[in-house]
Amino acid sequence: MNHELKVEKQQAGNGVRIEKTFDRFTLGQRWEHLLVLVSVGVLILTGLPQKYRGAEWSQQILSTPERLDSIRQVHHFAAIILLLVGLYHVGHNLYLLLKRSLPADIFPDRDDFRDAWGMIKYLLFFSREKPSYWKYNFEQKFTYWFIFITLAVMGVTGIIIWFPIPVTQLLPGAVIPASKLAHSTEAIVLTVFILIWHVYHVHLERLNLSIFNGRLSETEMRENHALEYERILKENENIPGPQEKEIEAG
């Protein structure tokens, strides 16, 4: 979906302020993110003690053989949830793309390389201005695709080590230890990536709650998605909102 302009009245002190907001994520997308967030969180928390079974802290968590079993069951349950969300996500979005009702904003293009170069110049003090972005900047696209590919790898390798016997009816046995190594290493890579990269960009750089409430404010749009902002304003030029004139407090 495109960012859609929405105008909301907000009570602020004595006067009424008009605030424009821009829809960024649909309710469905927000639910998907929440499910991914929770299931990946559970998977990491239940996966690490299994990976580090040799370590004492992990053995404290695993306290009884039954606990080890239940941690494994929770891990498998969360994996099923994530798998279903993933399948829905890919299927639904492919359908929308084919129906041409979803703009291909998330796919990387040449602009992203230009923007990344511009950003590096900015970060190294060779340039005063950050690049201007469309709906998703290159950092956000990188986040999406990195996590997308990682979760695909985790899903495939996870299923292989979950069902080793049926898998080896079809594939060579060597895929089992290879998948185990990949699953257990990729998990750490993902955790590190989320903790450093994603947490910084959505919490520390600026608190970006759009994935939870679905919208960005006009200021946020102007500052972080200038190209998209201008495009939307141009699109909406001919349709002035009825409430756009300021209204005095009653």
């Binding site: 016997i165 080896t168 594939l171 060579p172 046995g173 060597a174 895929v175 230890p177």
Partner: peptide, 13 residues
């Protein structure tokens, strides 16, 4: 692993 097939042993390093 009673159901293991012939490929299984190559899973063992």
């Amino acid at each position: 692993h009673p159901d293991a097939g012939p490929n299984w042993t190559s899973a063992w390093t």
